[in-house]
Amino acid sequence: MSKLTLRTEGDTVVVVTRRFAAPPAEVFRAHTEPALLQQWCLGPDGWTMPVCVCEPRPGGKMRYEWANADGAGFSLTGEFVEVDAPHRTVHIERMHLPDPTPDNRIETTFAADGDGTLLTMRMQLPDAATRAMMLSTGMEHGMEDGYQRLDRRWAR
């Protein structure tokens, strides 16, 4: 099964793809229903998402707030621009660390792929430097390691 891929376009775009073993409607739901997002969209172990607002309609807000047991926290806010459930969304987002990062425009598509879904996120980053640094940290290799561990677990 193809897992995460990452490629660049032009100076400022990163395209990430990932295949899931569930149909587009379910993967779309998992990306847009707060009760589901709060179960998986948690980042590193030890974090929870006590606040999750997700309004998948044009102009709808998103607000994700993460926290850990040490009292640390950060958040993401954004706005949906286009929503074509369960096929495609376009949204703008920024992280608050706590100062906001530059706006990142993300087009997400959920395409049927056999009996699963091919997720594609096209991220328009604010400038070439941000993208260069993102890629220079070996993002794709780290992700691949994680997914290979997952593959091994499923193979058992």
């Binding site: 995460l4 990932r18 899931f20 073993a21 993967v27 998992a30 179960q39 998986w40 969209c41 948690l42 980042g43 590193p44 172990d45 780290g142 992700m143 390691d145 994680g146 997914y147 561990r149 997952l150």
Partner: peptide
């Protein structure tokens, strides 16, 4: 990485 593992 971890988020997608959980989503799987």
């Amino acid at each position: 990485e971890r988020s997608y593992e959980r989503l799987d």
